[in-house]
Every structure is written in structure tokens, then in C-alpha cells.
């Protein structure tokens, strides 16, 4: 299987998860979008040295993943694939910020390591929440929710079109790449051949767009989008938004692990 096919399968996998009937999928998509955005803002608003204090917030993506029956392995793989930039930028913190910050008996931990750990936790939380949101909602429902939340239709329609035709043109690109590879004897694609290859793909895209437009006009398209209103807000959605928001506020205001740790240490020997 070629690299392109693998990427397309990857793209399809999250949507396939969302097509199932899970408690997460039954929630109104708007509730999930709003709560996830609030979650991300709360996570990034923590102090740069916060590590333990961020951990209670992991309850949100974890609970969503369980409610949506999202398998953890592909999520973890996506997280690892996307991690390099945040890790690369963050790894300089331990080198630059050497003031001791944590002490365990004789050993101290530099502030830079703490803030680096914070970056890794932030990364896992924010990106994980976004992936679970898609895996539990699906592209179509997500775009419907965005449109109902006031995002201009030009944008949501564009997202849906892109998502639909990414598979079509992706498969076409994969076929062209395979055909070239079979004829090239394993040589890499030279720039002089890249222009015609990608260019032909582009010309086919133009022609396809023309055909799609004719088909749309034939079905009465006049530049306006009319969609069925499938989203239904229920009391469960209100409870979801309010409940999690309260939890986020609590976790932001009180360092729960610190309090818990003190309590345990006091209660201990």
C-alpha cells in the first residue's frame, strides 16, 4: 500500500469511528464543540510550570474517549506522529531554565524540566481532545454544528467539499504515483517530472470541479445552501456543557492534585 493510500485510510478512520451509535455521538455536536473549545482555553491558560495541576483535566478527553468507544491505540499513534514540533521547541527549556524548582530530599529538578513536562501534558490534552471530538462527532455533523454556531457558510461548505473530494483526488494521486513508480525503476520523482504529474492532477481537478458545478446547477443550485436541521439540543446537552465547565473552573481555581497530595501525606505516617 502506498504512502498516499495509508494517509487516506488514516483520514477515513476517525470518521468511521463517528459513524457508530455511541453515547458520545448522541450528544448535540454544538455541546461538544463549545465544551472542547472551553477545555482547550482552560488548559493553555495554566501557568507555564503547571504539570500536576493540569492532570485532573485529563478526565475530559478520557471520559469522551470512553463514551465514544474510541480505541486508544490509533489516538496515541496520531499524538506521537504530531508531537515532534512541540517536543523540539520545548526541549530547549531544560537547557535554558536551570533554576531548581522541585526538591525531593537531596535531588532537585530544574524549572526547565518542569515547564518541558508541562508542554508535553498540554500537547497531549489539547490535541487529544480535538481528535476525540472528531472521532465522536464526524465531519458532517461537526460542520453542521459550526454553521449553526455562526461560522460563515462559505467556510463550512468549503470544509465539506474539501473533505469529500480529498478522498477522490487522493485516490487519483495515489494511482498516478503508483503508475509512475512502476515505470521509473525506483528513481525518485524529479522536479522536471513533478510539474507535469502534479499539473495533470490539477487539470483533472479543474475539470472535475466543472462537472460537479454542472451537476449542482442541474439539481437547482443557486449559490444558497439548504441543509436539513438534524441537530437537537436536549437537557442532556445543557448538563454536559454546564457540568464540564464547572469541573474546568474548579480544576483551574484549585490545584486539586496538590491538595490531594497534602491530604494523603498528612493522613499517612
Amino acid at each position: 500500500m502506498s504512502r498516499i493510500d495509508a494517509a487516506l485510510r488514516d483520514l477515513r478512520s476517525l470518521d468511521a469511528l463517528a459513524a457508530r451509535d455511541t453515547p458520545l455521538a448522541r450528544l448535540d455536536a454544538r455541546a461538544k464543540v463549545v465544551t472542547t473549545l472551553a477545555f482547550i482555553v482552560v488548559v493553555v491558560s495554566f501557568d507555564r510550570y503547571a504539570v500536576a495541576a493540569l492532570l485532573p483535566l485529563a478526565a475530559y478527553p478520557v471520559a469522551l474517549a470512553v463514551l465514544g468507544d474510541v480505541p486508544p491505540a490509533p489516538l496515541a499513534r496520531k499524538l506521537l506522529l504530531a508531537a515532534p514540533f512541540a517536543v523540539l521547541v520545548g526541549i530547549f527549556n531544560p537547557l535554558l531554565d536551570r533554576a531548581p524548582m522541585l526538591a525531593f530530599g537531596e535531588t532537585t529538578v530544574a524549572a526547565g524540566w518542569v515547564s518541558f513536562a508541562s508542554i508535553l501534558v498540554r500537547f497531549a490534552l489539547t490535541v487529544g481532545a480535538a481528535l476525540v471530538l472528531v472521532a465522536g462527532t464526524g465531519m458532517h455533523t461537526l460542520c453542521a454544528a459550526l454553521a449553526r454556531l455562526g461560522v460563515p457558510q462559505v467556510l463550512t461548505a468549503q470544509l465539506l467539499f474539501l473533505y469529500r473530494y480529498a478522498f477522490v483526488l487522493g485516490a487519483e494521486a495515489a494511482r498516478m504515483a503508483t503508475a509512475r513508480e512502476l515505470r521509473s525503476g525506483g528513481r525518485a520523482l524529479a522536479l522536471s517530472a513533478y510539474g507535469p504529474l502534479a499539473g495533470h492532477l490539477l487539470l483533472r481537478a479543474f475539470e472535475r470541479a466543472q462537472r460537479i458545478h454542472l451537476a449542482m446547477v442541474a439539481r437547482g443550485f443557486d449559490g444558497q445552501w439548504r441543509t436539513l436541521r438534524t441537530l437537537r439540543w436536549s437537557s442532556r446537552d445543557t448538563a454536559f456543557v454546564l457540568g464540564w465547565s464547572l469541573f474546568f473552573a474548579l480544576a483551574r481555581a484549585v490545584d486539586l492534585p496538590q491538595a490531594l497530595g497534602r491530604l494523603l501525606l498528612l493522613a499517612g505516617p
Binding site: A157, Q158, L160, F161, L162, R164, Y165, A166, V168, L169, G170, L202, A205, F206, R208, A209, Q210, I212, H213, M216, V217, F221, D222, G223
Partner: peptide, 12 residues
């Protein structure tokens, strides 16, 4: 309105 499908397909 030709732009609508063209933009979508060029994004793809």
C-alpha cells in the same frame, strides 16, 4: 457559484 465546487476540489 462556479467558485464553490472549484474551491472545494482545489483544496482537495
Amino acid at each position: 457559484d462556479r467558485l464553490v465546487p472549484l474551491m472545494g476540489v482545489l483544496g482537495a
